[in-house]
Structure formats: structure tokens, C-alpha cells
């Protein structure tokens, strides 16, 4: 068996090992490859930078479950850090039951990094509430009617951050981090119905679907996958897990490109030889 045939019949477990090594090696020995900030990420950064400090709060909707944590948690933390650093009040909510613990964990992680911030004044966790679309519409009608208590059962009326907050008019922006199409519902209800700005952080799989909303101005900015998170970490100058992971991401992409090229070359080379052999075989049959 020659090299090209070996490539085509190679045990897929060899590829698994190669990919595993390509990911693990940069994690152990960082390459510190540069991360270039793209315009969609910069737009979200600028939009958050334009929100005055200690003014209207932002809603951060943590709509992901453990299956997409490696991509979405770094961007949630990066944006939360940016808001906390700029003293923008933050309301953390989730539309997924599996996201409740993750939302609370992300909020508490960042809050612990800013000792001056206080719960109920600078940030609040409203927890999970069923019926995503109706919750979004409800926020537009009466926030405290929709969320009579926070995620710990404390009445909303007793929380400083929610005093004077009636609907989307009193909210600077909605930021949704999700591995599903919930961000489209935020666009429809928060932006289209009530005119509230919406930004999104989505998994890389969904990023290409989200670009049309960015292009039409329905999203103020967009973070796509781990690279989006790493770019945002660059902008706030706070390297985290996304920046660490981007070295591995680059190495694996090179590996996959090489494998795709080799696979295609092997396919065409073996097909050519196979075709030539078939023609030769037919010629022999014809002469005999």
C-alpha cells in the first residue's frame, strides 16, 4: 500500500490522537500567537464603553448550558469584567433552567474580583424564569411584575439596582450569551418591539447565522465562539481561558487544513491511478 492509499484508509483514531496532541501541546507550552480584534467584537466593546457609569443597568442573559461552557463562559466573564470595571450596573438572568447555576457562578466569579461592588446595588441575579419570549415581553411592560423577586427570593422592591426600573426604557442594553436561537427572540422583542439595544455572544457554529443581524444593525456587536471571547479579552486587557485556548485553536486549524489538503490530493491521485488501471484492464480484455 502506498502513502496515498494509506492516507485514505487511515484509522480515524490516528486523527483523534493528532488532534489531541495539537490541542494539548500549546496548552502546556504556550505559543502566544497574536489575536487580531475583528470589527464585530470591537463594535460591542465600543457600545458598552458608550454606556455612562453608574447609570442605566445592562441585562446579561446567560442562556447556555454546560455543553457550550468552553466557548461562552469566557466571553460572559470578559463582558462582565468590562461592565464591572466601568461601574455599569448588571442584571444577570437566564432563560434556561440548566443555565441557572452557570449564570450565578459567572456573576459571583467576577463580583469576587471587584471587592468594591455590592450585591443589589451594582449587580443582581434574577435567576431562571420559564417562558423566554413572554418574559422578554413582560420586561417591556413591567420589569418588577415579571420578576417580583431575585434569584434568592429577595423582593425586587428592596433591591437598589431595580428601583426606578420599569421597562426597557430604563435598560441600557441587553447582552445575550447563548448556544441557541434565543438571541433572535431578544432581537424580536427587546429591539424590534421596544427599541432596546441588543448585543450577542454566540457559539462559533451559530456565528454565521448571526452576521445578518449584525449587518442590519439589529445587533450592536457580536462575539463568535472562542475567538470572539479571546478578542474581547484583548480589548479589556484581561487575558483569560479564551486567550489561552486560541494557540491550540490555531494549531488544530493548521492540522485540519493539512489533513483536508492531503485527503483531497490522495483522493485525486488514487482515482487517477485507479482510472488508468481500469483502462489498461479493458484494453487487455479487448485484445484477448
Amino acid at each position: 500500500m502506498n502513502f496515498w492509499r494509506f492516507l485514505l484508509k487511515m484509522d480515524r483514531r490516528i486523527i483523534f490522537v493528532l488532534v489531541g496532541l495539537a490541542v494539548a501541546t500549546p496548552l502546556v507550552v504556550p505559543l502566544n500567537l497574536p489575536v487580531r480584534v475583528t470589527e464585530p467584537v470591537r463594535r460591542l466593546y465600543r457600545a458598552i464603553n458608550e454606556i455612562p457609569s453608574n447609570s442605566k443597568p445592562v441585562i446579561i442573559s446567560v442562556d447556555y448550558d454546560p455543553s457550550t461552557v468552553p466557548e461562552l463562559r469566557p466571553m460572559t466573564l470578559a463582558v462582565l469584567r468590562h461592565c464591572f470595571r466601568r461601574k455599569i450596573p448588571v442584571i444577570v438572568i437566564t432563560m434556561l433552567p440548566a443555565g441557572a447555576g452557570l449564570a450565578r457562578d459567572a456573576m459571583e466569579t467576577v463580583a469576587s474580583e471587584f471587592p468594591g461592588s455590592s450585591y443589589g446595588k451594582d449587580f443582581v441575579y434574577m435567576g431562571y424564569k420559564p417562558g423566554a419570549s413572554l418574559v422578554m415581553v413582560g420586561i417591556g411592560q413591567d420589569f418588577q411584575g415579571t420578576y417580583p423577586a431575585d434569584g434568592f427570593g429577595k423582593p425586587s422592591a428592596e433591591l437598589d439596582i431595580l428601583k426606578g426600573l420599569h421597562n426597557y426604557d430604563d435598560i441600557a442594553m441587553v447582552l445575550d450569551f447563548t448556544g441557541s436561537s434565543i438571541y433572535e427572540s431578544w432581537i424580536m422583542f427587546a429591539y424590534q418591539k421596544y427599541g432596546c439595544k441588543v448585543g450577542a455572544g454566540v457559539t462559533a457554529v451559530m456565528a454565521s447565522d448571526a452576521y445578518p443581524y449584525l449587518n442590519t444593525g439589529q445587533l450592536v456587536g457580536l462575539l463568535g465562539g472562542l475567538s470572539g471571547a479571546a478578542e474581547y479579552e484583548q480589548l479589556i486587557n484581561w487575558p483569560g481561558n479564551a486567550t489561552i485556548g486560541m494557540d491550540a485553536q490555531s494549531v488544530v486549524h493548521i492540522l485540519i487544513i493539512v489533513l483536508i489538503l492531503l485527503g483531497n490530493i490522495a483522493y485525486f491521485v488514487t482515482r487517477k491511478k485507479h482510472g488508468a488501471a481500469q483502462v489498461a484492464g479493458q484494453g487487455q480484455k479487448g485484445s484477448s
Binding site: 496548552l27 468552553p70 472562542l226 481561558n241 485556548g245 485553536q249 486549524h253
Partner: peptide, 15 residues
């Protein structure tokens, strides 16, 4: 983007 997403999950676990 799909390759990037799947690799991100592997990076998360190996990290």
C-alpha cells in the same frame, strides 16, 4: 466555524 466550535469544546476539556 463548526470546526472551531468543536475544537473549542476539546480545548475546554483538555484545559
Amino acid at each position: 466555524y463548526t470546526v472551531m466550535a468543536r475544537v473549542s469544546l476539546l480545548i475546554g476539556r483538555l484545559n
